[in-house]
C-alpha cells in the first residue's frame, strides 16, 4: 500500500533522511522506531507532503505522491496524527473533529462516524463544546486520533502517540489502535521512541538511526533482539 524507495529529505543543507526504503502492506501495523533526532517525524512529514522529499520515490497504491500537495494526499486517504497532537487550541472539540472531516460531504455518514467516535472516547462527547486547548494531554491525544479517523483514512500515520502520556493512558490508546486495525482493517504506520508498546502492537518494524534504516524484521523478533533491547527498550 505504501512504499518508500531511497527517500531523501533535506532541511537546507541538513540531510535528515539519507535514502530510506520501507513498505507497509494493506491491513498491516508497521512501527518505525528510533531515538530522538533519527528522522522519524521527517519521514511522516515527507509522506504527508509537508516537507517534500528531495530524492527517491514515495508510492501510495503504486502512485507516486512525493510531489503532490498535502491536501491532495489527505484526499487520497492518508491521515496523520502529528507529534505533539497539534489540536487547534481555539476550536472546540467538535470543531476539531469537523476539521478532520473537512474533505467529506456525506453529512449523514459523518454523523454516524461521530457517534462511533464518541462511543470509542466518551470523554470527547462530554467535552465537545470545550476549547481544544483546554483538554488534558491524554484527551488531546484521543481527539487527535479521532480527528484523523473521521477522515476515514486508508492509511493512518501516528507520530509518537504515547509521548507524555501516563502508562495507563498509553495502554488505552494502544488498545484503541488495535481495535481500529482489527475492525476496519485501517492500515497503521506508527513512529515511536518508546519502542516496547509499539513492538507489541505492530506486525513488522523498522529501526531508524541517523536518517537511515539500520534494522528491519518481524516485531516479535525485534523485541528480543539484543541491540534493540539495549538501545530502545532500556533493558
Amino acid at each position: 500500500m505504501l512504499k518508500l524507495v531511497d527517500v531523501e529529505t533535506c532541511y537546507g543543507c541538513i540531510r535528515a533522511l539519507k535514502g530510506i526504503s520501507l513498505s507497509v502492506a494493506e491491513g498491516e501495523i508497521v512501527a518505525l522506531i528510533g531515538s530522538n533526532g533519527a528522522g522519524k517525524s521527517t519521514t511522516l512529514m515527507s509522506i504527508s507532503g509537508i516537507t517534500k522529499a528531495c530524492g527517491g520515490q514515495i508510492l501510495f497504491n503504486n502512485e507516486p505522491i512525493e510531489k503532490i500537495d498535502p491536501d491532495k494526499i489527505v484526499a487520497m486517504g492518508i491521515s496523520q496524527v502529528p507529534e505533539g497532537r497539534r489540536i487547534f487550541p481555539k476550536l472546540s472539540v467538535l470543531e476539531n473533529l469537523e476539521m478532520g472531516a473537512f474533505l467529506r460531504n456525506d453529512h449523514a455518514e459523518i454523523k454516524k462516524d461521530l457517534a462511533y467516535i464518541y462511543k470509542l472516547f466518551p470523554i470527547l462527547q462530554k467535552r465537545r463544546h470545550q476549547q481544544g486547548g483546554t483538554l488534558s494531554g491524554g484527551e488531546q491525544q484521543m481527539l487527535a486520533i479521532s480527528r484523523a479517523l473521521i477522515a476515514k483514512p486508508k492509511l493512518l500515520l501516528l507520530d509518537e502517540p504515547s509521548l507524555g502520556l501516563s502508562p495507563l493512558m498509553t495502554k488505552l490508546i494502544y488498545s484503541i489502535l488495535a481495535k481500529i486495525n482489527a475492525e476496519h482493517r485501517t492500515t497503521i504506520f506508527l513512529v515511536e521512541q518508546n519502542a516496547f508498546m509499539a513492538l507489541k502492537l505492530a506486525h513488522r518494524a523498522y529501526v531508524l538511526e541517523n536518517g537511515a534504516i539500520s534494522l528491519e524484521g518481524k516485531a516479535s523478533d525485534l523485541i528480543h533482539n539484543e541491540n534493540v533491547r539495549k538501545a530502545y527498550l532500556g533493558i
Partner: peptide
C-alpha cells in the same frame, strides 16, 4: 470560516486535515 480559523491557528495541521492553504 472554520478552515480560515484553523489555518490561522496551525497552518501545517490545517494542511494535514486537507485544507488547501
Amino acid at each position: 470560516g472554520k478552515a480560515m480559523r484553523a489555518t490561522a491557528q496551525d497552518q501545517t495541521m490545517a494542511m494535514l486535515t486537507g485544507v488547501n492553504v
